[in-house]
Nucleic acid binder design. Sequence first.
DNA 1: CGGAAGATTTCT
DNA 2: GAAATCTTCCGA
Length: 206
Amino acid sequence: MKAGKSKIVDRNFFVRDAHLVAYDLLGKVLVHENQNRRVSGMIVELEVYSGPEDAASHSYKNLGSTRTDVQFHVGGFAYVYTIYGVYHCFNVVVNKPHKPEAVFIRALEPLEGIEIMQKKRKTENTANLCSGPGKLCMALDINKTHNGADLCNGTLYLEHYKSFSKDEVQNSPRINIDYAGEAKDYLWRYYIKNNRFVSKTPRKAP
DNA sequence: CGGAAGATTTCT
DNA sequence: GAAATCTTCCGA
């Protein structure tokens, strides 16, 4: 990396296989510049959703629908959707166009703008600010206007920060996708071991 | 045009 | 363990 230059993750990072990107995303920092204030947190937990072959993915047998349209773009764009009419979920689209893969960000370790997060989340418990997909969207003020946003050119982006060895990363089945048949057993959730900001204790791997 | 389901959170 | 609540998708 060039000294003094931007730490922002560039496009090429995202245009790779979803699992490679997912592993490297652990330890990156998600930053949202809102009204000249930086609100950010380190990614400590995520899941991979891989296109038409993944029964749990929104793009499964759902090719070209309006909601998942952004998943067919080149990597490095945001995919934001509303869940249960109440909360938002933030995904990073990865890989090349027409490869509808996405990394679903599940939890962050709060770093900057913590007082802003506390205000938005109405709690002072930092371990509860971003420990879940809906929570982190609330804390970083991510909403549907960010759907399709370019993470390489905007106020919402990722920065290089830490990297973790394989020993420090645990994989497990994904959460709340029991409807997905065999796909529910794929070990496509990744999180940092012994990190108290991970959303919850995972179900034991089969 | 209407019915159904969901990558969640929070409270009991 | 269940409710809250609305966008999106799919069938008719």
